[in-house]
Design a binder for these strands. Sequence first.
DNA 1: GATGAATGAGGATTCATTCAT
DNA 2: AATGAATGAATCCTCATTCAT
Lengths: 200, 200, 200, 200
Amino acid sequence: MRRATAAAEAPLISKRHRILRAAIDVFAQSGYFNAKVSEIAKAAGVADGTIYLYFDGKEDLLTTIFREHTRSYLQSLERDMAPVRRAEDRIRIAIRHHLETLGRDRSLAIVAQVELRHSLKFMSLLSHQEVGDYLGILRNVVEQGQSDGTFRRNLHPQLVAKAIFGVLDEMVTSWVLSEKEYALGDQAEQVADLILNGLL
Amino acid sequence: MRRATAAAEAPLISKRHRILRAAIDVFAQSGYFNAKVSEIAKAAGVADGTIYLYFDGKEDLLTTIFREHTRSYLQSLERDMAPVRRAEDRIRIAIRHHLETLGRDRSLAIVAQVELRHSLKFMSLLSHQEVGDYLGILRNVVEQGQSDGTFRRNLHPQLVAKAIFGVLDEMVTSWVLSEKEYALGDQAEQVADLILNGLL
Amino acid sequence: MRRATAAAEAPLISKRHRILRAAIDVFAQSGYFNAKVSEIAKAAGVADGTIYLYFDGKEDLLTTIFREHTRSYLQSLERDMAPVRRAEDRIRIAIRHHLETLGRDRSLAIVAQVELRHSLKFMSLLSHQEVGDYLGILRNVVEQGQSDGTFRRNLHPQLVAKAIFGVLDEMVTSWVLSEKEYALGDQAEQVADLILNGLL
Amino acid sequence: MRRATAAAEAPLISKRHRILRAAIDVFAQSGYFNAKVSEIAKAAGVADGTIYLYFDGKEDLLTTIFREHTRSYLQSLERDMAPVRRAEDRIRIAIRHHLETLGRDRSLAIVAQVELRHSLKFMSLLSHQEVGDYLGILRNVVEQGQSDGTFRRNLHPQLVAKAIFGVLDEMVTSWVLSEKEYALGDQAEQVADLILNGLL
DNA sequence: GATGAATGAGGATTCATTCAT
DNA sequence: AATGAATGAATCCTCATTCAT
């Protein structure tokens, strides 16, 4: 069925990866519940059953997308923050990293902002693991800033971490829903300014 | 299950209202997609078909819940803010109002934070209407503060409005997902402090 | 959709019964595993989903067919045997009853001889309940005959009961599989003669 | 799992035989319809595809099991009966042979009593060939006994053959389904006594 | 001969909605 | 207005079989 050309022999992208990418696009397009597994298969260029050789089912696709992207997100975040010492600068970097990373892949952003939150059970799952790790990183920076006296000490670090996450999350959601085209990363300065200096 | 008193026979609460309340609870419990219309009917004490006399269908239930609560939310918010003049105080009131209102009804909060966001299409709908109105109110306060010179002028009012909404939204989501019991409204002070004064 | 004629108003046969009858015919025709629920629905003149208002699923159809027919079988057997006193005559009646009852409904016989035995689990289920009851009735007659001295005492009553059942079962199976048309009940005499008098 | 010795590399038992044995065990364990070809392959220690080098498919496995065991069964039966002349003794031998052979291999008995009968089409197939041959052997003995005057002549030989088969079949089925452990062959005496001498 | 990754047809079941009463 | 029995469209997943290596 498949011609034995050299090109076909060694598909550049792994089947597993193609399926995940197709899932992101189809979930973003149709929403998780309305997405059909067979649509994902078609988009990935594989048979329906092939998906089940790599994943446990539709839900596992969503979970895997989330886990793998969060892992790589957190890794690159820590890589970006590593060379920087001052808490204030680290906050700026985290903000920029969040907006630029999600601003780069609209389908992924849709999945992250919308589809991953389709049920309380799913949100709890995410919240307790990966989102928790992310908040932990932010909280550490806040605590560092409070220790070295550059951040005010009367704010609860965990609350600040959530607040920062909330602001960023809303920026991304708003961007995803917006009909206008704009670069999400361009908001990093203003967001950082607001968080660091406040309205007053 | 139903008390067979004459009073129960002629319920004080309208059938329409009972159905909406039942829908909130069932959506919160099972999630929108997994919720069955017949479950809502049972919880409301009506026949399945009766729901269709009052609503267009399952989705209309969710839409109606959202619209009616948002309308009453915005009304009470404006009532609360009306007597207050200073922009800073109005921000504090908006923050407290958000957290206290949602902190009062966990099922409603679950529906608001989770179920209303189950699809891009649904989120767009909300965003363009009611959330837009809410952001407009916040933006007006910010603009007022910038006009009278109490707020810094280098922040874009719309971005500030989104940021405030984002922080509040995350506080509510976090509270909904938390296993600990705590009063959401108690966070109003800290949140306002952060927004107004910043981290530094 | 359905015209409101008087005839249509009161179908003579209940929907539940029509579904069961259709299931017997379709199971007999296609075999349990190959039978499609939608085929049964079509044969019964109902929608696919209607079957699930009356039964738990495909397997429940088979179980119900078995249970209801066995119950009525055992009732009519006891009714037939009641007026008769002599053990030998009761054996003759049981034999005739078995062959005539199953010889009357070929589809039902197919289901009884073939489809009900499609798995060890299913056979165990049947065996422990209804077949056990049937064997109990036969064993009682054998014990009665042994008590009053008309039957030989060196045969284990339970073994004899099984043997009688086995002979009858094979007669029915053979009839079901036969391409020739013949009245199953006509074999009752010979079978009884063999069981009672033996080969010698 | 597989011992990597040279001996294991060249197994003493043919691949074909190992597959058949694995099929018997898996069919007995899971039932024909629920048995997965890949399970059989794993149990036989071969790749899924290898099965198709030796057999036409899943159904062919069942057919082959049946045919080969029936052939060897009939051969050993005739071997056992050959030295014996009297019809009565030959009947006793056939009975003992049936019960002892099947009583020796529970998995095989399960396949024979349950799985081989999962559909009308399959039963017809068996009935017309191998079971027919078996009944023919029994019928010959009966006819012999009737010719030499030791068996009563008013019983139809084919019916007697079926009856004997039915009794034996039920004894095996009952043994397969029984939770008690007992030697099936021990029932040979009583069964023969019943068949030959009857109840009276 | 042997492998096992890939295929893709096939079906039981659910549940939102309707409508005769 | 209210009922609830009936409808039937819609889809995830399994697994026997194939075939390139």
